[in-house]
Computed example of a mutant assay.
Amino acid sequence: MVIECKHVWTYISDYLDGTLSEEIRVTVQKHLEHCELCSAILDSTRNILVLTADDRVFELPVGFSERLHQRLEEELKPKKGS
């Protein structure tokens, strides 16, 4: 079974939690072995989890939240031709 990146992204959290069905987990794992972008997203998500689990408090740069939301909206918009 071939899976597209946008579908892998929806499974990242469950993949990290270990709650995917065996079939989906294997499919996502195979995709991650060959896709640098999705592997980077997985690594980034892991890093975010580590940082947010840390008890230390840190301040985000001014405007970070707005830039993050704008970038997420841009990335989630359907691409022309897909």
Rank of each mutant, 00 (worst) to 15 (best):
R25T: 05
D54M: 02
K79R: 14
A53M: 02
I41E: 01
V8I: 08
F58M: 11
R25E: 13
M1D: 06
R56P: 02
G18R: 12
W9A: 14
Q29D: 14
V2N: 14
L51R: 10
H7I: 02
W9C: 04
Y15P: 00
K80N: 12
K80Y: 10
E75G: 06
S21Y: 08
G81P: 08
K80M: 10
S39D: 01
I24H: 11
M1Q: 13
N47H: 05
E66K: 15
E22P: 03
E59N: 12
S21N: 11
Y15H: 10
T45G: 00
E36K: 14
C5D: 13
S82M: 05
T10L: 09
E22F: 04
R46Q: 10
E4T: 14
E75H: 03
E59Q: 14
T27E: 14
T10S: 13
E73T: 11
Y11T: 05
H7D: 13
V50S: 08
S13C: 07
P61K: 15
I41G: 04
E59R: 09
V26H: 11
F58G: 09
S13E: 15
E4L: 14
G81Y: 09
S39F: 00
R71C: 12
G81M: 09
F64A: 08
K80I: 03
T19Y: 08
R56T: 06
K30I: 03
S44A: 12
E74G: 02
E4D: 13
C38K: 00
V28Q: 00
V8E: 00
G18W: 11
L68I: 12
I41H: 06
S44D: 04
V26Q: 12
T27W: 05
E4Q: 13
L49Q: 07
I41M: 15
V28L: 08
H69D: 09
I3W: 10
I12W: 10
L37S: 10
M1W: 07
H7F: 13
G18C: 07
L32H: 04
D14M: 08
D14K: 15
R56E: 11
Q70D: 07
K80A: 15
L60C: 01
I41Q: 09
I41K: 02
Y15D: 03
I24M: 10
S21F: 03
M1F: 05
D54P: 05
I12T: 04
L60M: 10
T45L: 02
L42H: 03
Y15S: 03
G81K: 11
H69Y: 09
Q70W: 11
T10E: 14
G18V: 07
L72K: 07
S13I: 03
E59G: 06
G18I: 07
E74P: 02
K80F: 12
G63C: 01
R46A: 02
Y11Q: 11
Q29A: 13
L32N: 03
V26T: 06
C35A: 08
V26Y: 03
C35E: 00
H34Q: 13
K6G: 00
D55E: 14
L51T: 01
I48Q: 02
T52E: 15
T10Q: 10
S44P: 00
T19D: 05
P61W: 00
L37H: 14
L42F: 05
V28K: 00
G18A: 15
C35R: 00
E73I: 04
L68V: 13
E59F: 08
T19P: 01
T52Q: 11
S65I: 13
P61F: 04
V50H: 06
Q29F: 07
H69F: 11
E59W: 07
